[in-house]
């Protein structure tokens, strides 16, 4: 690692002030950032550790859903009785991130701000009609992810919390890389009244919805409703783990599994 300075502010305002240095990096649980720094792939002048900011922590019930602080660790979401009772699919998704030690450190805000194309949480943000609250504004989940490792966040803007809408039914099905546990393809299906959302992660540069699947499931919320439907392999990711064609195939398979799991 290259050398950096380290700060651990105790308020969001102090964190925002510290993050104004353009070479500063925000530190959540560090499970992506620290390996990146160890490989000298980044050289921030300063790390701003958000673990001391109390207003970024915790899980609470709000009208129509759940509000989860950005500095809430994956293990806390996975084990929360409130999340398990309100949006069990979200707890299940969190329990499937990385391994136990990664979940004990990694945070929701860190995951969505990093916007890894294979991360799990982006699919929940989109499928659960989330809104992302930052230090300065509210961003619709649909507008948050703008590309591979790119979000609508401005330089120095800090995610404070994420508000998820409670669906009638939902499930997340992931075909994971067995070594990294990242999603090769992950599909989050959520039914909100007459509306169904199908959000796919891992398959492309950024999370995306599948309108044809959503329309079919809105008319008939069964796995069979997806028979014969598929996404185009154009623009899907291809790497040593899976070709674009295989990923396209997996999108339908995992969407069906999610619908079956949602019941």
């Amino acid at each position: 690692m290259y050398a950096f300075t380290y700060q651990r502010p105790s308020t969001l305002a102090d964190a925002v002030a510290a993050a104004q240095d353009e070479d500063a990096k925000l530190l959540g649980g560090g499970q992506t950032l620290l390996p990146t720094l160890k490989q000298r792939l980044a050289q921030p002048s300063a790390l701003v550790d958000l673990s001391g900011v109390a207003e970024m922590k915790g899980i609470k019930a709000v009208d129509g859903g759940l509000e989860i602080g950005a500095f809430t660790r994956h293990a806390e979401v996975a084990h929360s009785d409130l999340v398990k009772a309100t949006i069990p699919a979200l707890a299940s998704l969190a329990e499937g991130i990385g391994d136990r030690q990664v979940r004990n450190m990694g945070t929701m805000g860190g995951s969505i701000a990093n916007a890894d194309p294979s991360a799990d949480y982006p699919s929940a943000v989109v499928a659960l009609k989330a809104t992302v609250t930052t230090d300065r504004r509210t961003i619709a989940g649909d507008d948050f992810f703008t590309g591979m490792f790119e979000t609508a966040l401005e330089p120095g803007e800090i995610v404070k919390s994420v508000r998820f809408s409670t669906p009638d039914k939902a499930a997340y099905a992931k075909f994971r890389n067995p070594a990294s546990r990242y999603a090769i393809v992950g599909v989050f299906v959520a039914k909100h009244g007459a509306e169904v959302r199908v959000a796919v992660t891992g398959a492309a540069g950024s999370v995306f919805r599948v309108p044809a699947f959503e329309a079919a499931l809105a008319a008939n919320f069964t796995a069979e409703a997806l028979n014969g439907l598929s996404v185009s392999a154009d623009d899907l990711n291809a790497d040593l783990h899976a070709s674009a064609d295989y990923r396209a195939h997996l999108v339908t398979v995992m969407a069906k599994r999610a619908v079956e799991a949602a019941g």
Binding site: G30, L34, Q101, N104, M105
Partner: peptide
């Protein structure tokens, strides 16, 4: 936690 992916200051 994995102590190779945690800073001492954390």
């Amino acid at each position: 936690v994995k102590s190779c992916t945690t800073l001492a200051v954390q």
